[in-house]
Every structure is written in structure tokens, then in C-alpha cells.
Nucleic acid binder design. Sequence first.
RNA 1: GGGGCGGUGGCGGAAUCGGCAGACGCAGUUGACUUAAAAUCAACCGGUGGAAACACCUUGAGGGUUCAAGUCCCUCUCGCCCCACCA
Length: 896
Amino acid sequence: MAATKKKTTTRQKANPKKVGSNRAVKAKAAKKIVVKKKTLPVKRSAARKVVKRPAGAAATKRAAPRAKAARAVSPVVQDAYNPQVIEKSWQARWQEDKLYRSVIDHSRPKHYALTMLPYPSGDLHIGHWFSMIPPDTRARFKRMQGYNVLFPMGFDAFGLNAENAAIKDGIHPMKRTFQNIERMRRQMRSMGTMFDWEREAVSADPEYYKWTQWFFIQLFKYGLAYRKMSAVDWCPKDNTTLAREQVIGENRVCERCGTPVIKKNLEQWFFKTTRYADELLRFDEIDWPERVRTLQTNWIGRSEGASVIFKTEAGDDIEIFTTRPDTLWGATFMVFSPEHLLVDKITTPEQKEAVEAYKLQAARQSDIEREAVDKEKTGVFTGGYAINPVNQARIPIWIADYVLMSYGTGAIMAVPAHDERDFAFAKKYDLPIVEVIRPEGQNEAGELQVAYIGDGVMVNSGPFNGTKVNTEKGRKNPGISKVIDWLAAQGIGKEAVNYRYRDWLISRQRYWGAPIPMVYCEKHGWNPVPDDQLPVLLPEDVEWKPTGESPLKLHPTWKDTICPVCGGPATRETDTMDTFMCSSWYHLRYLSPHDDQAPFDENEYNYWMPVDTYTGGIEHATMHLLYTRFFHKALRDMGITEGNEPMMQLRNQGMVLAEDHSKMSKSRGNVVAPDVLVNRYGADTVRAYIMFFARWEMGGPWDSQGIEGTARWIRRVWTLFTERTRPGAASEQTKKNLRRRVHQTLRRVTRDFETFEFNTIISSLMELLNEMYKAREEGAAGSPEWNEAAEIYLKMLAPVAPHIAEELWTNRLGKPYSIHQQMWSKVDEDAAREDMIEIPVQVNGKVRDRVLVSAEADEDEIRTTALASEIVRKYMEGRQPQKVIVAQRRLVSVVV
RNA sequence: GGGGCGGUGGCGGAAUCGGCAGACGCAGUUGACUUAAAAUCAACCGGUGGAAACACCUUGAGGGUUCAAGUCCCUCUCGCCCCACCA
């Protein structure tokens, strides 16, 4: 009884081909594990015996233990569940066998499952697991359904964090980033995902960013990349732009010298995303969450109206956009944004001092401060006047910070009678208010107390007096429509659509990004770096000085180059690209990450694209998810990609919160470290708990105690499949019930995988396990029904807990390796059908009894049975039923 | 100010087509096993009343539709998220 018995948990590698690599050697070492047997309780000991590997499993065989490995593992009860051993060994085996390699296979339907790639911050946290594991289980499920699945992973490796850290401690961002990536890769491998690492792409790798640069050049050649002036934060003492992070405190001072930061117009590179604004508003081809569609729609912020040209007294055009051209006759003044280009020209000498002071003050405020709703409006008169083109009225021009340079044209016509903001401004500065829309039926208006926004009839509006207008925008409003036609006929305005959406600012005055591959020559202006000179490599010999300047600018020689047109001296662009540029096309790089002839291989594209399922956080709704759609559409128009959308289905996971419902963050010290959990429980348990503890699409607070339940379940799975029980003589009913539960569960689990409802997959599997324990108690073990149940159970478990499922399938049940190459079982609907159903019976809306009827019973039969119930009759108190409703064989409702 | 999501036991959550509310788990209580603990196993576990049978109440609040509402409609309320002087 107490005899020590040795065994290995897995096989020895039969094929020595790959033994040369470090990984293979390490994996082999991990495989040689001896498990000792200790005294066992009498009852169970008889049952425990290792199931021998069938002769047919050629790739594996039992191996003699080695002394070293025997010492490495403390003696444990034989066959106790030991995830640390089986997980490492199966991971090594799968890797050696290239089990998760995805190659084009036209005989199978493809499924491209993509999950947002992480930034290599250092350590994998529980949020990464939450975003990666459920999609991994689903990708595995799809694969078992017969799809050829591509499920790649990579790193969004450029970015500010590594550079800021470098300024602090001098460690080169490249070194830090690639070290972090190596660590995260190791951590990711412990998760047991089916990532195809041969397709890994790292955006900071020159073989990757060569193509990011190439795409920039294509966009430039196609006219979608351009330079323009843009207001950025600027430190006047250090003469440098500052990143948002470098501007600190409410006073907005430079983090280094404490000087107040101002806005300054600088030339920057932009992408013309706005050209696609209308198309980006269409979602009819894609299955994306309503929430994301709404966020994108609001972000793009389309509004219809008119563009009208006012004139300064000196004759300069002032273009404005308005959604209310019907109120043009009520424009009594104009307001410019303080940054408007005409401000200096129109300002009179008497007003110059006040205007300059106001501009300085406005420049120091953040957008957020400037846009605060309840802030009282301020402004300054410029001394200049404009001519209203509809009635030639001479109206004063003010500047005020409530007019934003970044929206519309940076200048508005102010109609105080019909706009709340203009009204407040006019009241404060005693400017005239002229009513031009009057509620219908009202003859004489007194002094307006508030701006009037509703329906009405145009008054004081020259040729349009008496025209009815409502509150509809654009052409849908007949009044506005007429005015627009008239403006166009007069040549002073036209119909116009304006967007909140702005062109994408690409330039970053930073080192750790893909250099913008452009060259400036005095004679020939801006030209792209020729293709054969790509990539424009980041120089490694740079210094980390806390100057706020990009090391690329400070590098003595890097920026010196020759003009691609004339061969004369020229200068490189020293700005790098926004990292969202890198992530706009990473799904394409996965197709052929090492291709040095093209950004992606055409055959791979034709087979795998578009992405079938995209998963990630909703925080990217108006950034990455919009950029990547723009990018795809632009490439489509250039003939590089096909189809209108890159990602057909999108699903967003929620956020994992700390146990006290607060956000997890390093500074709070409440981050859950998955490595510790994996060491303690094994990856399979952590995977299952990740799926179980909250609704995936909602997220929720972490509960460190809750994982015990999932751990218990996994151990019970292990016990059920490793304990040998005498075949019993279960009744036909027991066996039939077992089959029914198995197929009902299979139906449910299949559906839940399809619909991303991962938590109920686990609860269904827990329930079925409980049923199987009961059935075994009743003697079902060893029957064909039992064997079918075991097989289907492990297959359903396989996507969730791939290691234990493989161990039990291959090594314990002796079924053909690998469970991950098995086909998903089909639901036997006949088996899943109930033969007797219990139907609750309500009397006057309250459930009073439950009656048992045959599943084939028709309505009459159910009704008769229900009314025959003693209890039901008692509650009817002798009255005749007014109405008896038999609802879908699910319930009987008696009304008396 | 606008838009969105949500509120179900002590906790996470289930109820997928308007049809038995509280599946599955955590925590808790009791018992078995143990020198003991852990692990495991068995039972209980929304509230009120009751010895019990059982009755009544219960899905943020109020109202409505319906034989029947967590689910549909209206009003309100609380929490979270996004946008926000958008001309």
C-alpha cells in the first residue's frame, strides 16, 4: 500500500530533430517529472490507477524518470492534480509540434480572430488576461468547429513611456522595450493561448516600421498627408514644444523651468481623415456594438448648414459656418477666436493693448478650461468692423475664447436673439440684439429675456419676412433651404456640412516612434525618402537630456541627407509618427511579418482578410478604431486593400476593477499579478476564473477568494477522470438522463461561445460535472453513455482549460493526440429532448402546483392534467375557470 | 446641457422569445472524516411570520399594459462612462 511508485506524466520526445534549440532542451527537462505515491485512504486507493497509454499513440511513450527531476518535485499523492507539471510539458509539446501554426488552407473556411495588441509596459497584468483569454477560448472553439483560425499576437512597442523613463534613468528605450517584450512573451506563454508566435509583429522593429513609413509615403503621394500650421503647447523660455504630459498643474507651466506654457502655431503633418468623414459614419457592413457606433458618430459630429462670406471693411473675406442661415439678418456682431489669422490685421491701434493681453491670457488656458460650460463669457473688441453680406450692416468684430479655432472656421456670426451664448455675450458687453424669428401668431415682441430657439416666422429679414422656419437642421427645414438657395444665387454663401472631426495630427516631437520619412530641400520642398532607402532608421547613438527636445533634433548628423530630387543638401524630418499610425495596420503585418518586399503578402491577404472577430477595450472607440477604419479605406482607394471595412465584428470587454471597485493602477498598489495565481493554481484555473468571475462585456471587481470555487471545479474534473470506478449497473433512465444533460449542455456551451457569453459556459460545465458525479454514483461509469459524456465533456473543456483537457484526453483516456485537433461534437437533438416535462400551474397569477406531462402532450392534454390537480382545484375554490392559457408548453395559467 | 450603460440575496452573477426569479459559484452555518488543521464529502443558505405544514413579500421607487412583467411602456431616482461654449 505504501509502496512508492514512479511514473512520468507525459511522453518522451520520439523525434529528436528539434532538440538543438534552447527551448526544446528546456522543455525536455520540464517533462521529466516523477510523482510519488503516499498512503491513500482505503476507499479511494483501490480506484487509483494510471491509465496506460495505448500502443497506437506512436508519438509518445512512457519514459524512465531521471534523478534530477525526481529531486525537483516534492513528493505528492500519486495522481494529484499538478498543473505546474502538466501545463509546462504540454506547452512545450504543442510548441514543438507547431500545433497552433496557421497556414493557408483552402479546404477549410478561415476565421481571423484578432485581439488588440498590448503596449510592452513590463508585466502582464490581469487585465491582459481578461482581454486575451476569452477570445483565445473562442478562437480555439472556432478551430474545433472546423475553421482554419488565425489568432496572432504582437506588441505596440513605440511610445512615450519608454522615452520618459529613459530621460529619468538613461536606459535606452529600445533596450527597455525589447526586454519588456521578452518578459511579456514568457508570461503570455504561461497562459496557454493558441497565439501563432511565428506571426508575431513588433511595431518598433525596423522590419515593421519600414512599412509604416512606406504607408506614410503612399498617403503623401495620394494627397492624404499634408503639412499645416497647428496650435501646440510651447515653452517660451526653452523655445520648444511640449508634450501634453510636460505641461503641469492648473497654471499650465513647463515641467522643467516653471515658465507658463503658451499656445503656438507650428507646422505639423496631418492625414486628411476628414475626407472620409461621411463614409466613416456608415456602419451598415459591420457588426459593431451600438455603443461604439454612437461614440464614433458623435465624435465625427456632422452638422448641416451654410457657409457664408462676410467681409472686413478692408475687403478681406471672413468665412463662417452656421447651422442657422435663417438668422443671418440678426447677426449684430462677429466673434473671432483669439488665434484667428485676421485678428492682428483688423485690430485698431487703440485696441491693440487689450487684444494682445487677451490673446496671451487665452493662449495660457487649456482647451478644457476654455470650454467650461458654466464659465462666464469674456471677450475684447478689436476695433474692427465687418459687413454683413445679407443687409450690408456694419457690425463690430470681437475676439472671445468661447470661439474655438479648431471648430468651423474660427469665426462666427453672433445672433444674440437666437443663440444662448451670443445672447449672454451681448448682454454682458451691451451689444445690440435684433429679433429675426418670432413665434407664430405673436405680433409684437417686447425685449427678449432669453434667446429664442423655437419654431417661428422670419421677421426683420428683408426678402424672407414671413417665411416659416422650424427647428430642423439643414435642407430638411424648408425655411433654411430657401435661404441657402438665395445665398448661393447671390454668390455670398452656399450649403455646407461641418464636422467636429478634425484631420489626424501625426507629428510627434519625440524619439521613440517611427521617423516620418520625409526630406526637406530648399529648392524642392518636401519629398519622400525613396523606397530603396527605407526604413529611415532611428539612430541608436542618441543622448537623453531633459531638454524636451527630440534627441533626433539634437543628433549631430542624423538629419543631414541629400534631396531625392536634386541630390543637393537636405534635411530629414525629425518628428516621428503618432503610434496610432503603427497600430492602424498591424492586422495586415501579421499576415506576413517578415516579408521584406511588401507590407503584407497578397495571397495571405486574399485568404485571411477581413478580420472576422476583433476584440478589445472600448476606450479606443474614437481613436484606434476610427483610425484603422480610415486607414483601410484610404488604402482601398489606393488599390492596396480590398473591401470597405477591415474588421467585420467587434466586441468589447469590460474592465477588471480592484476588489474595492476602484480602478487598478500601479500607484494604488492594487494590481492583481496573474503570475502569482498561475504558480498557485495553474493557468487552466486562472483561465476558467477569468471567464467566470464577471460578464466579459461588463467586467467587474476582482474577487481573490472566488477563484477557489473554480480551482475546486478543476480539481473535481481531475478527480472524476482519474479515479477508476467499477463499472456499475446504471438504470436506463440514469443513462438517458446523462445523455440528455450532456447534449443540452453542449447546445448551451456552443451558443454561448458564439455569443461571447463566457461566464455561463463555465457554470454550464460546472453543472454538468455535478450531474456526472451523480450519474457515476448511480453506476453509469463504464457505459457507452458515460464514455460519450466523458469525451464531449473534455472537448467542451478544451478551449477553456487546454492543458488539463489534453492531459486527460491523451494520457488518461488514451485518445488520439491532440484534443485541440478534434472536431467539436454535434448536438444530438433527440438525446437533448426531455421526455417528461414539469409544467407549473398558476391560479390567478400565482404558481400553485407543478404537473408532470409527457413532452409530446398537446395543449388539451396539458390543460386536462393541470385542471385535474388537487391543489389547483383547491385554489379554484369550486369556481369555473374563466380562461385557461397553456403557454408554449411552459406554463398553464388558470383564471377564475 | 446632450448621449450611452447599468441598479436582481451578504458578494460575483443566472434567467438568451413576456411564462417556475435567484442557476452556477464565493462567503456563511451545521455535520462526517482528522490528534488537529487543510483538503474532501454531505446538508442548509432572499426576507417576514410560523414548531412545522405553509402563507405572505421580494429584481432601485411609483404607475401602466397583460391571464402572466426582472424582461414591454410612462414618470422618477441613484451609480458609472463618453461628449460637451460645436456656431
